[in-house]
Design a binder for these strands. Sequence first.
DNA 1: CTACGTGCAAAACTTTTGCAGTTTG
DNA 2: CAAACTGCAAAAGTTTTGCACGTAG
Lengths: 158, 158
Amino acid sequence: MAADWEKRISEFLDAQGVRSTAQRRAIIRAAFSTTEHYTADELLVMAKKLDDSVSRATVYRTLPLLVESGLLRELDLGKPHKYYDPNYLKHPNHNHLICVDCDKIVEFEDPELEEREEMISRKLGFEPAQKNLQIRASCSKLRNSGACENKKRKKLAS
Amino acid sequence: MAADWEKRISEFLDAQGVRSTAQRRAIIRAAFSTTEHYTADELLVMAKKLDDSVSRATVYRTLPLLVESGLLRELDLGKPHKYYDPNYLKHPNHNHLICVDCDKIVEFEDPELEEREEMISRKLGFEPAQKNLQIRASCSKLRNSGACENKKRKKLAS
DNA sequence: CTACGTGCAAAACTTTTGCAGTTTG
DNA sequence: CAAACTGCAAAAGTTTTGCACGTAG
């Protein structure tokens, strides 16, 4: 698995026409070592664990490489920093439901939604390239019983 | 019309439990003087035209008032600054299609999309509060004929 | 009159960049 | 060895905040 990744990463860097450095490999390996969303800073921490020589600058320089090649997706969640989502490789068309009570994020797919979005885009005279649906919602259980099972998992506010 | 606005603004400020100042009134009037999206800085310019004493600080302090009360909606378009959309009052459920060729933004509504989004949210155990669909798309005319009628309307990159 | 609000300028935060030194191919 | 890359620290750009002064109620 690790060796497999190393090969895929090298091939990716080759394809991008850039050099394969220890830092880039560590950053990319870290970027796909989780299914959670993370910020550039959080990715720096993860990459540093694999290779302590990785710097913030290189993280910020490598991220656009991954985003523009479609491997990683930039996510705006209304916070001052951007989030990155590594799950678009496996689920290219997923959407996000964000709990307003605990900030928990649920990813979901729906082919019918997809279809309608494409249909509407074409009717407006456009060819859809990237669709992004975010739903902010409150936990029904919280409303009914006064307790949200996700509440304990509340993430940091910033 | 103008007098009408003044009354509505005073009522809004009253309801928020804050004082009605010349600066706040100018900012709010400016905020709803257009159907275009704008940044905090652009709003400052617009408000300054109505009352030159308005400062950047007060704009940044007033915006959350409008956003939290639901009159204005914050929009993340992948740019380093946030945009504000004054059109949710008239069209509470509209979505955004953004042309990747010229950055033009088309707003559209679709009740069927709405319904499905709500249905999915409930099935996941949530009560939807705010739905936000952004579609990045390319102009079909550009693809077919090599010319995009919106190209000339291209907005500033930042 | 006093609590709330304002402008100014400095600070905070994320992201970008210039530069001198290092490494890849 | 030359071109590409890196880390560091400074810079850039947006948003927030402390403080002394002003003003609404």
